[in-house]
Design a protein around this nucleic acid. Structure first.
Lengths: 198, 198
DNA sequence: GGCCGACTATGACAGTGGTCATAGTAGCGA
DNA sequence: TCGCTACTATGACCACTGTCATAGTCGGCC
Protein backbone atom coordinates (compact mmCIF):
# COMPACT_ATOMS: atom_id res chain seq x y z
CA UNK A 1 0.00 0.00 0.00
CA UNK A 2 3.06 2.26 0.05
CA UNK A 3 3.75 3.74 -3.33
CA UNK A 4 6.11 6.32 -4.59
CA UNK A 5 4.45 9.57 -3.67
CA UNK A 6 5.21 12.04 -6.35
CA UNK A 7 3.14 15.16 -6.55
CA UNK A 8 0.97 16.65 -3.86
CA UNK A 9 -2.08 15.75 -5.86
CA UNK A 10 -1.32 12.04 -5.78
CA UNK A 11 -0.43 12.28 -2.13
CA UNK A 12 -3.83 13.78 -1.38
CA UNK A 13 -5.69 11.05 -3.25
CA UNK A 14 -3.67 8.46 -1.41
CA UNK A 15 -4.23 10.13 1.94
CA UNK A 16 -7.94 10.36 1.25
CA UNK A 17 -8.06 6.63 0.59
CA UNK A 18 -6.19 5.91 3.81
CA UNK A 19 -8.40 8.11 5.93
CA UNK A 20 -11.58 6.82 4.32
CA UNK A 21 -10.38 3.31 5.00
CA UNK A 22 -10.13 4.12 8.67
CA UNK A 23 -12.96 6.54 9.46
CA UNK A 24 -15.35 6.36 6.54
CA UNK A 25 -16.17 9.07 4.03
CA UNK A 26 -18.27 11.34 6.18
CA UNK A 27 -15.84 11.46 9.07
CA UNK A 28 -12.94 12.29 6.78
CA UNK A 29 -12.58 16.03 6.39
CA UNK A 30 -11.01 17.79 3.45
CA UNK A 31 -8.73 19.77 5.74
CA UNK A 32 -7.71 16.51 7.36
CA UNK A 33 -6.80 15.01 4.01
CA UNK A 34 -4.61 17.96 3.14
CA UNK A 35 -2.90 17.87 6.52
CA UNK A 36 -2.33 14.13 6.29
CA UNK A 37 -0.79 14.54 2.86
CA UNK A 38 1.38 17.41 4.00
CA UNK A 39 -0.23 19.52 1.32
CA UNK A 40 -1.46 23.09 1.66
CA UNK A 41 -5.15 23.54 2.22
CA UNK A 42 -5.46 25.77 -0.79
CA UNK A 43 -4.38 22.97 -3.08
CA UNK A 44 -7.66 21.20 -2.46
CA UNK A 45 -9.74 23.52 -4.53
CA UNK A 46 -6.97 23.83 -7.06
CA UNK A 47 -6.55 20.13 -7.78
CA UNK A 48 -10.09 19.07 -6.97
CA UNK A 49 -12.42 21.81 -8.16
CA UNK A 50 -15.19 19.23 -8.02
CA UNK A 51 -14.88 19.27 -4.25
CA UNK A 52 -15.10 16.31 -1.97
CA UNK A 53 -17.11 14.32 -4.45
CA UNK A 54 -14.22 14.41 -6.88
CA UNK A 55 -11.61 13.62 -4.27
CA UNK A 56 -13.55 10.66 -2.93
CA UNK A 57 -14.19 9.45 -6.45
CA UNK A 58 -10.50 9.49 -7.29
CA UNK A 59 -9.60 7.77 -4.04
CA UNK A 60 -12.08 5.00 -4.75
CA UNK A 61 -10.86 4.65 -8.33
CA UNK A 62 -7.30 4.42 -7.08
CA UNK A 63 -8.27 1.68 -4.64
CA UNK A 64 -10.01 -0.25 -7.40
CA UNK A 65 -7.00 -0.05 -9.68
CA UNK A 66 -4.75 -1.06 -6.82
CA UNK A 67 -6.81 -4.12 -5.97
CA UNK A 68 -7.02 -5.16 -9.61
CA UNK A 69 -3.30 -4.76 -10.19
CA UNK A 70 -2.59 -6.69 -7.04
CA UNK A 71 -4.26 -9.80 -8.45
CA UNK A 72 -1.54 -10.23 -11.04
CA UNK A 73 1.20 -9.97 -8.46
CA UNK A 74 -0.55 -12.49 -6.22
CA UNK A 75 -0.77 -14.98 -9.06
CA UNK A 76 2.91 -14.53 -9.84
CA UNK A 77 3.83 -15.15 -6.24
CA UNK A 78 1.96 -18.45 -5.98
CA UNK A 79 3.91 -21.68 -6.21
CA UNK A 80 0.82 -23.68 -7.11
CA UNK A 81 -1.58 -21.32 -8.89
CA UNK A 82 -5.03 -22.49 -7.80
CA UNK A 83 -8.13 -20.40 -7.01
CA UNK A 84 -7.98 -21.38 -3.36
CA UNK A 85 -4.36 -20.36 -3.07
CA UNK A 86 -5.12 -17.05 -4.73
CA UNK A 87 -7.96 -16.43 -2.31
CA UNK A 88 -5.68 -17.31 0.58
CA UNK A 89 -3.13 -14.81 -0.67
CA UNK A 90 -5.77 -12.09 -0.95
CA UNK A 91 -6.91 -12.74 2.60
CA UNK A 92 -3.36 -13.02 3.90
CA UNK A 93 -2.73 -9.43 2.91
CA UNK A 94 -5.35 -8.46 5.46
CA UNK A 95 -4.43 -10.85 8.23
CA UNK A 96 -0.86 -9.66 8.00
CA UNK A 97 -1.86 -6.03 8.14
CA UNK A 98 -4.19 -6.63 11.07
CA UNK A 99 -1.64 -8.60 13.04
CA UNK A 100 1.01 -6.00 12.31
CA UNK A 101 -0.89 -2.74 12.74
CA UNK A 102 -4.06 -3.64 14.59
CA UNK A 103 -7.60 -3.62 13.32
CA UNK A 104 -7.66 0.01 12.39
CA UNK A 105 -8.61 0.05 8.75
CA UNK A 106 -11.00 -1.57 6.32
CA UNK A 107 -11.61 -1.41 2.60
CA UNK A 108 -12.09 2.12 1.26
CA UNK A 109 -14.45 0.90 -1.45
CA UNK A 110 -16.70 -0.69 1.14
CA UNK A 111 -16.60 2.47 3.21
CA UNK A 112 -17.57 4.61 0.26
CA UNK A 113 -20.41 2.24 -0.54
CA UNK A 114 -21.81 2.36 2.96
CA UNK A 115 -21.53 6.11 3.30
CA UNK A 116 -22.41 7.30 -0.17
CA UNK A 117 -24.39 4.70 -2.12
CA UNK A 118 -27.73 6.18 -1.12
CA UNK A 119 -26.86 9.86 -1.26
CA UNK A 120 -24.30 10.47 -3.98
CA UNK A 121 -24.83 8.93 -7.37
CA UNK A 122 -21.44 9.99 -8.71
CA UNK A 123 -19.55 8.25 -5.93
CA UNK A 124 -21.82 5.24 -6.17
CA UNK A 125 -20.89 4.85 -9.82
CA UNK A 126 -17.23 5.21 -8.92
CA UNK A 127 -17.58 2.42 -6.38
CA UNK A 128 -19.25 0.16 -8.93
CA UNK A 129 -16.39 0.85 -11.34
CA UNK A 130 -13.87 0.04 -8.62
CA UNK A 131 -15.46 -3.33 -7.97
CA UNK A 132 -15.39 -4.02 -11.70
CA UNK A 133 -11.72 -3.06 -11.86
CA UNK A 134 -11.13 -5.60 -9.14
CA UNK A 135 -13.40 -8.37 -10.35
CA UNK A 136 -12.38 -8.40 -14.00
CA UNK A 137 -8.71 -9.32 -13.61
CA UNK A 138 -9.65 -11.75 -10.87
CA UNK A 139 -12.08 -13.55 -13.17
CA UNK A 140 -9.45 -13.65 -15.89
CA UNK A 141 -6.96 -15.16 -13.48
CA UNK A 142 -9.47 -17.84 -12.53
CA UNK A 143 -10.06 -18.71 -16.16
CA UNK A 144 -6.32 -18.98 -16.68
CA UNK A 145 -6.19 -21.40 -13.78
CA UNK A 146 -8.66 -23.70 -15.45
CA UNK A 147 -11.99 -22.50 -14.12
CA UNK A 148 -14.72 -22.75 -16.77
CA UNK A 149 -15.22 -19.36 -18.38
CA UNK A 150 -18.91 -19.23 -17.56
CA UNK A 151 -18.23 -19.62 -13.85
CA UNK A 152 -15.22 -17.34 -13.49
CA UNK A 153 -17.21 -14.16 -13.09
CA UNK A 154 -19.50 -15.64 -10.46
CA UNK A 155 -16.62 -17.14 -8.52
CA UNK A 156 -14.74 -13.85 -8.65
CA UNK A 157 -17.81 -12.16 -7.21
CA UNK A 158 -18.00 -14.84 -4.54
CA UNK A 159 -14.37 -14.36 -3.59
CA UNK A 160 -14.61 -10.59 -3.34
CA UNK A 161 -17.90 -10.70 -1.47
CA UNK A 162 -16.58 -13.18 1.04
CA UNK A 163 -13.36 -11.27 1.54
CA UNK A 164 -15.16 -7.97 2.04
CA UNK A 165 -17.50 -9.51 4.57
CA UNK A 166 -14.69 -11.23 6.41
CA UNK A 167 -12.78 -7.96 6.61
CA UNK A 168 -15.84 -6.36 8.11
CA UNK A 169 -16.28 -9.09 10.72
CA UNK A 170 -12.59 -9.17 11.55
CA UNK A 171 -12.62 -5.45 12.25
CA UNK A 172 -15.72 -5.78 14.37
CA UNK A 173 -14.35 -8.66 16.42
CA UNK A 174 -10.78 -7.37 16.34
CA UNK A 175 -9.76 -10.86 15.47
CA UNK A 176 -8.51 -12.46 12.28
CA UNK A 177 -10.69 -15.50 12.93
CA UNK A 178 -13.28 -14.61 10.26
CA UNK A 179 -10.54 -14.28 7.67
CA UNK A 180 -8.91 -17.58 8.51
CA UNK A 181 -12.31 -19.28 8.73
CA UNK A 182 -13.43 -18.25 5.27
CA UNK A 183 -10.09 -19.20 3.77
CA UNK A 184 -10.25 -22.60 5.42
CA UNK A 185 -13.79 -23.26 4.24
CA UNK A 186 -13.90 -21.57 0.86
CA UNK A 187 -10.40 -22.41 -0.38
CA UNK A 188 -10.95 -26.11 -1.09
CA UNK A 189 -14.33 -25.39 -2.61
CA UNK A 190 -12.78 -22.92 -5.03
CA UNK A 191 -10.12 -25.42 -6.05
CA UNK A 192 -12.85 -27.94 -6.84
CA UNK A 193 -14.11 -25.61 -9.55
CA UNK A 194 -11.02 -26.22 -11.63
CA UNK A 195 -11.94 -28.60 -14.44
CA UNK A 196 -8.97 -28.10 -16.71
CA UNK A 197 -5.71 -27.94 -14.78
CA UNK A 198 -3.62 -24.98 -15.80
CA UNK B 1 -38.58 -5.32 9.07
CA UNK B 2 -41.85 -3.78 10.11
CA UNK B 3 -42.66 -4.45 13.73
CA UNK B 4 -45.28 -3.23 16.07
CA UNK B 5 -44.04 0.14 17.15
CA UNK B 6 -45.01 0.66 20.70
CA UNK B 7 -43.33 3.40 22.63
CA UNK B 8 -41.47 6.38 21.24
CA UNK B 9 -38.26 4.95 22.59
CA UNK B 10 -38.50 1.81 20.51
CA UNK B 11 -39.54 3.84 17.52
CA UNK B 12 -36.40 5.94 17.83
CA UNK B 13 -34.13 2.89 18.04
CA UNK B 14 -35.87 1.44 15.02
CA UNK B 15 -35.62 4.70 13.10
CA UNK B 16 -31.96 5.01 13.97
CA UNK B 17 -31.33 1.55 12.55
CA UNK B 18 -33.19 2.43 9.38
CA UNK B 19 -31.36 5.69 8.84
CA UNK B 20 -27.99 4.15 9.63
CA UNK B 21 -28.75 1.44 7.13
CA UNK B 22 -29.23 4.04 4.46
CA UNK B 23 -26.77 6.83 5.20
CA UNK B 24 -24.26 5.44 7.68
CA UNK B 25 -23.73 6.47 11.27
CA UNK B 26 -22.00 9.79 10.74
CA UNK B 27 -24.53 11.11 8.27
CA UNK B 28 -27.43 10.23 10.54
CA UNK B 29 -28.24 13.08 12.88
CA UNK B 30 -29.96 12.81 16.22
CA UNK B 31 -32.57 15.35 15.23
CA UNK B 32 -33.17 13.36 12.07
CA UNK B 33 -33.79 10.21 14.07
CA UNK B 34 -36.33 11.94 16.26
CA UNK B 35 -38.10 13.44 13.28
CA UNK B 36 -38.18 10.12 11.46
CA UNK B 37 -39.64 8.43 14.52
CA UNK B 38 -42.20 11.16 14.97
CA UNK B 39 -40.81 11.71 18.42
CA UNK B 40 -40.09 15.01 20.10
CA UNK B 41 -36.50 16.17 20.03
CA UNK B 42 -36.42 16.49 23.79
CA UNK B 43 -37.02 12.79 24.16
CA UNK B 44 -33.57 12.08 22.85
CA UNK B 45 -31.77 13.21 25.94
CA UNK B 46 -34.48 11.74 28.09
CA UNK B 47 -34.37 8.22 26.73
CA UNK B 48 -30.75 8.19 25.64
CA UNK B 49 -28.74 10.13 28.21
CA UNK B 50 -25.66 8.37 26.86
CA UNK B 51 -26.06 10.40 23.69
CA UNK B 52 -25.52 9.20 20.17
CA UNK B 53 -23.18 6.46 21.29
CA UNK B 54 -25.99 4.86 23.26
CA UNK B 55 -28.57 5.26 20.52
CA UNK B 56 -26.28 3.76 17.90
CA UNK B 57 -25.38 0.94 20.25
CA UNK B 58 -29.00 0.06 20.82
CA UNK B 59 -29.80 0.25 17.12
CA UNK B 60 -26.94 -2.13 16.35
CA UNK B 61 -27.98 -4.49 19.12
CA UNK B 62 -31.53 -4.46 17.80
CA UNK B 63 -30.31 -5.34 14.32
CA UNK B 64 -28.23 -8.20 15.67
CA UNK B 65 -31.15 -9.65 17.59
CA UNK B 66 -33.37 -9.24 14.57
CA UNK B 67 -30.95 -11.08 12.28
CA UNK B 68 -30.49 -13.86 14.81
CA UNK B 69 -34.21 -14.31 15.36
CA UNK B 70 -34.79 -14.32 11.65
CA UNK B 71 -32.67 -17.46 11.25
CA UNK B 72 -35.22 -19.56 13.09
CA UNK B 73 -38.06 -18.27 10.97
CA UNK B 74 -36.11 -18.98 7.78
CA UNK B 75 -35.47 -22.55 8.85
CA UNK B 76 -39.14 -23.06 9.62
CA UNK B 77 -40.10 -21.77 6.19
CA UNK B 78 -37.82 -24.13 4.29
CA UNK B 79 -39.37 -27.18 2.68
CA UNK B 80 -36.03 -28.95 2.49
CA UNK B 81 -33.86 -27.66 5.33
CA UNK B 82 -30.35 -27.65 3.93
CA UNK B 83 -27.57 -25.08 4.50
CA UNK B 84 -27.72 -23.97 0.90
CA UNK B 85 -31.46 -23.41 1.07
CA UNK B 86 -31.05 -21.43 4.25
CA UNK B 87 -28.41 -19.26 2.64
CA UNK B 88 -30.66 -18.74 -0.35
CA UNK B 89 -33.46 -17.64 1.95
CA UNK B 90 -31.18 -15.19 3.73
CA UNK B 91 -30.09 -13.70 0.44
CA UNK B 92 -33.62 -13.68 -0.93
CA UNK B 93 -34.65 -11.28 1.80
CA UNK B 94 -32.27 -8.79 0.26
CA UNK B 95 -32.99 -9.42 -3.38
CA UNK B 96 -36.68 -9.00 -2.69
CA UNK B 97 -36.14 -5.76 -0.84
CA UNK B 98 -33.86 -4.41 -3.54
CA UNK B 99 -36.21 -5.31 -6.34
CA UNK B 100 -39.14 -3.88 -4.45
CA UNK B 101 -37.68 -0.68 -2.99
CA UNK B 102 -34.50 -0.06 -4.92
CA UNK B 103 -30.93 -0.26 -3.70
CA UNK B 104 -31.29 2.29 -0.97
CA UNK B 105 -30.21 0.50 2.15
CA UNK B 106 -27.57 -1.86 3.43
CA UNK B 107 -26.85 -3.64 6.67
CA UNK B 108 -26.77 -1.35 9.72
CA UNK B 109 -24.18 -3.51 11.44
CA UNK B 110 -21.85 -3.18 8.49
CA UNK B 111 -22.43 0.56 8.43
CA UNK B 112 -21.63 0.89 12.10
CA UNK B 113 -18.48 -1.16 11.62
CA UNK B 114 -17.23 0.99 8.79
CA UNK B 115 -18.03 4.27 10.50
CA UNK B 116 -17.15 3.52 14.09
CA UNK B 117 -14.80 0.56 14.42
CA UNK B 118 -11.71 2.74 14.48
CA UNK B 119 -13.02 5.64 16.52
CA UNK B 120 -15.53 4.39 19.07
CA UNK B 121 -14.69 1.34 21.13
CA UNK B 122 -18.14 1.08 22.71
CA UNK B 123 -19.90 0.88 19.37
CA UNK B 124 -17.26 -1.48 18.02
CA UNK B 125 -18.00 -3.87 20.88
CA UNK B 126 -21.72 -3.56 20.15
CA UNK B 127 -21.08 -4.47 16.54
CA UNK B 128 -19.06 -7.52 17.54
CA UNK B 129 -21.89 -8.60 19.83
CA UNK B 130 -24.38 -8.13 17.01
CA UNK B 131 -22.40 -10.39 14.72
CA UNK B 132 -22.26 -12.98 17.48
CA UNK B 133 -26.02 -12.74 18.00
CA UNK B 134 -26.38 -13.47 14.33
CA UNK B 135 -23.72 -16.14 13.94
CA UNK B 136 -24.60 -18.23 16.98
CA UNK B 137 -28.15 -19.28 16.01
CA UNK B 138 -27.00 -19.73 12.44
CA UNK B 139 -24.28 -22.14 13.50
CA UNK B 140 -26.79 -24.02 15.65
CA UNK B 141 -29.14 -24.30 12.72
CA UNK B 142 -26.35 -25.71 10.58
CA UNK B 143 -25.52 -28.30 13.19
CA UNK B 144 -29.17 -29.26 13.36
CA UNK B 145 -29.10 -29.75 9.59
CA UNK B 146 -26.32 -32.26 9.85
CA UNK B 147 -23.20 -30.14 9.49
CA UNK B 148 -20.39 -31.41 11.71
CA UNK B 149 -20.25 -29.39 14.90
CA UNK B 150 -16.63 -28.39 14.43
CA UNK B 151 -17.40 -26.81 11.07
CA UNK B 152 -20.68 -25.09 11.86
CA UNK B 153 -19.13 -21.96 13.30
CA UNK B 154 -16.77 -21.51 10.37
CA UNK B 155 -19.52 -22.09 7.85
CA UNK B 156 -21.78 -19.63 9.64
CA UNK B 157 -19.00 -17.08 9.44
CA UNK B 158 -18.56 -17.87 5.76
CA UNK B 159 -22.27 -17.40 5.08
CA UNK B 160 -22.51 -14.09 6.90
CA UNK B 161 -19.30 -12.78 5.37
CA UNK B 162 -20.39 -13.68 1.88
CA UNK B 163 -23.83 -12.22 2.37
CA UNK B 164 -22.48 -8.97 3.76
CA UNK B 165 -20.06 -8.62 0.90
CA UNK B 166 -22.70 -9.43 -1.68
CA UNK B 167 -25.01 -6.83 -0.17
CA UNK B 168 -22.22 -4.31 -0.48
CA UNK B 169 -21.55 -5.14 -4.12
CA UNK B 170 -25.23 -5.23 -4.99
CA UNK B 171 -25.70 -1.74 -3.59
CA UNK B 172 -22.66 -0.50 -5.44
CA UNK B 173 -23.73 -1.97 -8.76
CA UNK B 174 -27.43 -1.39 -8.13
CA UNK B 175 -27.97 -4.90 -9.31
CA UNK B 176 -28.88 -8.12 -7.53
CA UNK B 177 -26.36 -10.02 -9.62
CA UNK B 178 -23.82 -10.37 -6.80
CA UNK B 179 -26.49 -11.83 -4.54
CA UNK B 180 -27.71 -14.34 -7.08
CA UNK B 181 -24.14 -15.21 -8.04
CA UNK B 182 -23.02 -16.06 -4.53
CA UNK B 183 -26.17 -18.07 -3.89
CA UNK B 184 -25.63 -20.01 -7.09
CA UNK B 185 -22.00 -20.76 -6.32
CA UNK B 186 -21.99 -21.13 -2.58
CA UNK B 187 -25.29 -22.94 -2.09
CA UNK B 188 -24.27 -26.35 -3.45
CA UNK B 189 -20.95 -26.14 -1.65
CA UNK B 190 -22.71 -25.55 1.65
CA UNK B 191 -24.99 -28.52 1.08
CA UNK B 192 -21.94 -30.70 0.50
CA UNK B 193 -20.88 -30.02 4.08
CA UNK B 194 -23.81 -32.05 5.39
CA UNK B 195 -22.48 -35.41 6.53
CA UNK B 196 -25.40 -36.57 8.60
CA UNK B 197 -28.73 -35.81 6.92
CA UNK B 198 -31.15 -34.14 9.29
C1' DG C 1 -56.33 20.54 45.51
C1' DG C 2 -51.29 19.90 45.69
C1' DC C 3 -47.38 17.49 44.34
C1' DC C 4 -44.13 14.94 41.83
C1' DG C 5 -42.23 12.33 38.30
C1' DA C 6 -42.30 11.41 33.33
C1' DC C 7 -42.07 13.49 29.35
C1' DT C 8 -42.15 17.41 25.95
C1' DA C 9 -40.63 21.72 24.00
C1' DT C 10 -37.23 25.25 22.69
C1' DG C 11 -33.29 27.93 22.63
C1' DA C 12 -28.48 28.34 22.84
C1' DC C 13 -23.73 26.88 22.53
C1' DA C 14 -19.34 25.59 20.70
C1' DG C 15 -17.37 23.00 17.21
C1' DT C 16 -16.75 21.42 12.51
C1' DG C 17 -18.06 20.57 7.87
C1' DG C 18 -17.41 21.93 2.74
C1' DT C 19 -16.99 25.73 -0.05
C1' DC C 20 -16.04 30.26 -1.85
C1' DA C 21 -13.37 34.60 -2.41
C1' DT C 22 -9.35 36.85 -2.47
C1' DA C 23 -4.68 37.64 -2.20
C1' DG C 24 0.00 36.24 -2.34
C1' DT C 25 4.18 33.80 -4.29
C1' DA C 26 7.26 31.16 -7.23
C1' DG C 27 8.91 29.95 -11.58
C1' DC C 28 9.55 30.76 -16.29
C1' DG C 29 9.47 32.20 -21.13
C1' DA C 30 9.78 36.42 -23.86
C1' DT D 1 11.26 43.55 -16.29
C1' DC D 2 6.96 42.18 -17.71
C1' DG D 3 3.29 38.99 -17.81
C1' DC D 4 1.40 34.72 -17.38
C1' DT D 5 0.39 30.38 -15.17
C1' DA D 6 0.63 27.14 -11.44
C1' DC D 7 0.19 26.85 -7.01
C1' DT D 8 -0.13 28.40 -2.08
C1' DA D 9 -2.18 30.80 1.75
C1' DT D 10 -5.96 32.62 4.61
C1' DG D 11 -10.14 34.24 6.10
C1' DA D 12 -14.95 34.14 5.99
C1' DC D 13 -19.46 32.03 5.24
C1' DC D 14 -23.44 29.31 6.29
C1' DA D 15 -25.27 24.96 7.41
C1' DC D 16 -25.34 21.61 10.57
C1' DT D 17 -23.78 18.63 14.32
C1' DG D 18 -24.24 16.72 19.31
C1' DT D 19 -25.06 18.43 23.64
C1' DC D 20 -26.74 21.07 27.39
C1' DA D 21 -29.96 24.11 30.04
C1' DT D 22 -34.25 25.55 31.08
C1' DA D 23 -39.03 25.81 31.05
C1' DG D 24 -43.42 23.90 30.13
C1' DT D 25 -47.10 20.20 30.19
C1' DC D 26 -49.45 16.17 31.41
C1' DG D 27 -51.17 12.40 34.32
C1' DG D 28 -51.83 10.04 38.29
C1' DC D 29 -51.53 9.56 43.41
C1' DC D 30 -51.83 11.05 48.22
Amino acid sequence: MSERQRGPRERMVFSAAQLIRRDGVNATGMREVAAHAGAPRGSLQHYFPGGKEQLVGEAVAWAGRYAGARIGRFVEGLSGPTPGALFAAMAAQWTEEYERDGFVTGCPVAAATVDRAASDEVTRAAVAAAFTAWRTPLAEALTAMGVPADRSADLATLMISTLEGAILMARAEQNVRPLTAVVRELGPLLDAAVTRPA
